[in-house]
């Protein structure tokens, strides 16, 4: 059975294909991963099997269930997936907030998730508001030990930062990119300012310019219903989607001569460099050198 994607860097990753909450036991589901049609099934013992849909022999693909999602690989994936300890904290509400099909590369989707500068323009009145447009200095590192991009001390002005407040204030953010197509955002909880809510985006590359973005939240808030949390995320992503689909080129440029970064894009610059170092070819315009 031929797989058209030939880039080992992307083939050997774990890829999210579905959140658990939308699956019916023992029903075969079909999706696309790296241009290959794949099928998968969850049984009543919470075991998952997956195979290439057009493979008559149904050779099983590596699978795992982690953080509320089913993950599949078309190559030889690492033994472990990145760490996300907050997912298992007992007082948190884990909500899968929906999957969004977007006509753009996975890299562009992750980069948009890391970007604060667009809040006042794309998420006006929710995550930002003019004229509070400044992206203050923040820190970025590529952690070799954990093999992830980490942006800390990020601050951005948010109107109505807390439910009970009419005034805007700076909100603190931490961003983690522990997987080439997955990112986590940590943000002060409006309920308990000593703890952090987590917002996740796990991107499933269907093709080089076509993805499904799986989103979720891991919140301390026990007042909002899952429905309200989903509604919020649908609004935010609905605002991002038309921007993402109007980016040209659709693939993420790792070649620095295509776009113009500014200091606010430090995390994106680090992300692109990290992808370059990994030798990723799929869904990116590789560096000219």
């Amino acid at each position: 059975m031929e797989i058209s994607c030939k880039d080992p860097v992307i083939l050997n990753q774990w890829h999210p294909v579905s959140s658990l909450d939308v699956l019916t036991m023992d029903t075969v589901e079909n999706t696309i991963l790296l241009e290959s049609k794949i099928s998968f099934q969850l049984n009543s013992k919470e075991e998952v099997t997956a195979w290439l849909s057009l493979d008559d022999e149904k050779t099983l693909l590596p699978t795992r269930i982690s953080y509320g999602f089913i993950w599949v690989s078309l190559g030889n994936p690492p033994k472990d997936l990145f760490l996300f300890p907050e997912f298992s904290e007992s007082d948190r509400q884990n909500v899968a907030t929906g999957v969004f099909g977007v006509n753009v590369s996975a890299g562009r989707t992750v980069e948009n998730f890391l970007d604060m500068g667009h809040f006042p323009y794309v998420h006006s009145g929710i995550l930002g508001e003019e004229p509070h447009t400044e992206v203050k200095e923040y820190d970025v590192e590529i952690s070799e030990e954990r093999d992830e991009v980490l942006a800390t001390s990020c601050k951005f002005y948010q109107p109505q930062a807390a439910v009970n407040s009419n005034e805007g204030m700076d909100v603190d953010y931490i961003y983690r990119v522990p997987h080439i197509n997955c990112a986590l955002l940590y943000k002060t909880s409006p309920v308990d300012d000593a703890r952090l809510d987590v917002i996740i985006i796990f991107v499933q590359p269907m093709g080089e310019e076509w993805v499904r973005a799986h989103t979720g939240m891991c919140l301390i808030d026990d007042e909002s219903t899952a429905e309200q949390i989903r509604q919020f995320q649908q609004t935010i992503f609905g605002q991002d989607k038309p921007i993402l689909e109007n980016q040209y080129p659709k693939q993420l440029p790792l070649d620095s001569r295509i776009e113009t970064p500014i200091r606010a894009d430090k995390s994106a610059i680090a992300y692109r460099r990290w992808l370059s170092q990994k030798g990723l070819q799929y869904g990116v315009i590789p560096s000219a050198i």
Binding site: E111, I243, N246, Q247, Y248, P253, E259, T260, I262
Partner: peptide, 13 residues
């Protein structure tokens, strides 16, 4: 050119 040089977003939008 129909592309903002910053992040490639179409200028027609």
């Amino acid at each position: 050119e129909n592309r903002c040089l910053h992040r490639g977003v179409r200028l027609t939008i």
